[in-house]
Every structure is written in C-alpha cells, then in structure tokens.
Amino acid sequence: MRRTIRGWGPPLLLISPSLILIGVFVYGLIAINAYTSMTDMHTAAQTTGRAPVAFVGLANYWDLLGSDSFQHSLKNLALYTVVFLAGTMVFGFLWAWMLDRPVKGEGVFRSIYLFPMAVSFIASGVVWRWLLNSNTGDKASGLNRLFQMVGLDFLQNGWWNNVNFGITAIAIPAIWQLAGYVMALFLAGFRGIPEELREAARIDGASEWQLYRLVVFPQLTPIALSAVIVIGHMSLKVFDLIMSISKPANYQTKVPAIDMFLFKSEYDYASSAAVGVILLVIVAILIIPYLVHVARSGRR
C-alpha cells in the first residue's frame, strides 16, 4: 500500500495542478455551458438573476436546428470545411511533392510557402477584403480588376457576396495561409521515407506511379490524417477571417461561431451556449475517432 502511494503519489501530486486547472476551467466550464444551453436564459434580466431561469431540456437545440438561418450557417460551415480541406491538402501535397525533388533554392520556396501562416487571420482578412471586392465591370477592383487586365473577364464574380456559395470565397485566403503548413507536414513525411525503399522498388521494376502508389503514399497516410485533423478543426472554428473580410451581420457568410457571438451580444446566453455545444460535438465527431486510432496504434 505504502509502496503504491510512493509510486503514484508524487507524480499524481505533480500533475494535479494542471489536472485541477483543466478540470475547472475546461471541463467544468463545458459542463456549465451545457447546462446553460438547456435553460431558457434568453433575456438580459435572466442573466443577472432578476428573472427566473427554467430548465427546458433540449428545446433550444430543436429551435436552433429547426431554424432556417442556423441551417444556413451549418450548410456554410460544411461547404467551407470541404473547400478549405480539399484546397490545403491538394496544394500542400503538390508543393511538397515538387520540393521533394532536388530543387535549387528549396529553402527559399519553402519559406515563401510557409510565410502566410505567420500572418494573423485578421490582418490577412483586411487585405483579402480588398482583393475579393465584389464589383464587376467598370467599377471592379481587386481580383476582378486583375482578371480584366489579363483578359479573363469571364472569371469575374461576386466572391463572398453569393448567398449560396459565398462562403467558399472565404476559404481562398484560408487555403493561402494554411497550405504551406500542410506542405511542411508532407515534406517531413517524404523525407521520412528511407531512400533504400525507393531504390528497392525501382530495382524490382516498379514504375514511378507504382512507386508512389505502393511505397510512398501508404507511408504518408498518418501525415495526411494529422493534417486533416488539424485543418479540419481549425475550419470548424472559423470566426476571425469572416469577421475581418465580411461582417458578422452579413447573412451570406454566417457560420455557427458567428451565430454564437451574435446570440451572446443580445443576452441570449442559452442559444449561444447551445451553439457552442453543437460546435463541440461536431469537433468531437472529427477528433475522437482519430484519438482512438492513435491510442490503438500506440498500443500495438
């Protein structure tokens, strides 16, 4: 008994501060948030305790999920995530694949692709708001003007001002910023594949395509999975980019995180908390299978 305490005690004591802090400030607050989302705290008076707050179960969730505008936000989020994920993965992989060959000035290219990641979403958003100006024709500016100058007039469009697909234009700056990061991940993956494996494959008579399909790609799978998880959860939390390119009140670029902010500012804490829980569940759906997968492969 004493032995077990001696064995477990000090380590437990050492990690207990972080355990307690995380317990209170992360899980405790998640619990409070979940409780708030199941009350009818929709007005200012209720938030200060001057009006009674009642438990309403899942009513707020049904209201939210049943409302057109929240469905629009969820649809926007899904669209954005798909485009952002696909864009970063494709560009990240392409750049890594090109840089993996012996290139002159590889370091320079690597830096150029990685640099956008160092810019904050708010700062790049301000510039992209100018680039993604939705005027076309005589009054065009930004990218639309550029299209005119190079004779690609037909490419002019309203960017994020389309009510159905506008959100995908917001993914363009996001891809620009994060594709370099995915490139760095893939590049590390490429470099981690021993040269001997490729040589062995070549000696066995594999074509370049077979070499990639059968030797390189399988070894890149864990990297790709990590990239999907990192980019995917960033995508679900998108907020700052939309705040600086569009405005929170603009319907065409609404996502759940923006709804959460707006509900909070109108003292509708219950709906705001419910949106928070919905976002948490969506992120969990993405991340928990990954954690399970990692834990399993760790045990192997």
Binding site: T43, V163, A249, N250, Y251, Q252, S265, E266, Y267
Partner: peptide
Amino acid sequence: PIAQLNAISDATSKFTTGG
C-alpha cells in the same frame, strides 16, 4: 431592444443578399 434589432438585421441581410 437589441434582440429585435438583431433579428431585423438578420432578415434584412438575408433579403438583400438574395436569400
């Protein structure tokens, strides 16, 4: 009050963007 104003803003933005 702000809740009604936000609801009107939402509806207006939805309408003017063609939603």
